[in-house]
Design a protein around this nucleic acid. Structure first.
Length: 253
DNA sequence: AATTTTTCCAACCGCGCGCTT
DNA sequence: CAAGCGCGCGGTTGGAAAAAT
């Protein structure tokens, strides 16, 4: 299912890789590594460009690389990560041992995207029949429109051992903890201008936009993984904190 | 059986970033 | 500081295989 091999005007070979080329590349990289992809084909005796070699190695030849046969767990993980990270295929692929970014991207476009669109259509139909509300099915209903919100709706407000140390400056996560409250406000203030409110049926959360801001913050922020995951898992809790503290407690400090 | 259409995987392409000179 | 280079990323394309007509 690929272009047949051919040579471009510069004499660089393109298109499908032969077994012999694969073996040459594999043998070279296994022996000498790949410090410089541009120089590599010359030394390995290949008429390919460096980019092509790199792609071939990453997607097909490197040890442990897998093809097809996605497990349900892998698919669910891709969907979840895509909700959180968007089209950051390389980041998503890093969480899936043996899968390359290209492989994950292709699988998304050819299978998962359609699957989700299909689910979305089915759920829209369900909502129409239910008179435009999502009562009782809040999390599931929200998921297709805005996966982040679905996640929040489904999440519990408990704070576990996984809470990042930064938020543990007070002994517990009581609502009196001003550290938590100011952190929550910081997040909303920092991202308040940049986010655009997603479509959400008004009768679900009313005027309370905290959920959206917090989750958008977690989504947009280039935060370290631990922090961002905390935001996702505890958005509901942070919302409660913010209701307790309508003003940022550290504002005037 | 022949032809057309669709699917989907491998590879290409262009851009942006970081590093070096 | 600017230019050049190499790499990695994400979007797009080509085309063989499969499915539909």
């Amino acid at each position: 299912m690929v272009r047949g091999p051919y040579y471009d005007k510069n004499g660089i070979k393109r298109g499908a890789w032969s077994k012999e080329e694969d073996e040459r590349l594999r043998a070279y990289v296994e022996r000498y590594g790949h410090r410089n992809w541009r120089q590599l084909p010359k030394h390995a005796g290949l008429s390919r460009c460096g980019k092509s070699c790199r792609l071939r190695w990453l997607n097909h030849l490197r040890p442990g690389v897998k093809h097809g046969n996605y497990t349900q767990e892998e698919e669910e993980l891709i969907i979840k990560l895509h909700e959180r990270l968007g089209n950051k295929w390389s980041l998503i692929a890093k969480r899936l041992p043996g899968r390359s970014d290209n492989e994950v991207k292709n699988h998304w476009h050819s299978h998962l995207k359609k699957q989700l669109e299909c689910n979305h259509a089915e759920k829209s139909e369900f909502k129409m029949k239910a008179g435009g509300t999502c009562e009782g099915e809040t999390a599931k209903c929200l998921e297709p429109e805005n996966p982040l919100l679905g996640f929040v709706a489904a999440s519990s407000s408990n704070i576990s051992e996984s809470t990042p140390p930064i938020y543990n400056s007070s002994s517990t996560f009581s609502f009196g903890g001003s550290t938590v409250a100011s952190a929550a406000w910081e997040i909303v203030e920092e991202f308040g201008d940049s986010w655009t409110q997603p479509f959400v049926p008004e009768n679900i959360y009313g005027q309370d936009n905290y959920y959206f801001s917090l989750n958008h913050a977690a989504y947009e922020a280039d935060l370290d993984e631990y922090y961002s995951s905390f935001l996702f898992q505890n958005a509901e809790f942070l919302c409660q904190v913010m209701r307790e503290f309508p003003e940022d407690p550290t504002k005037d400090i």
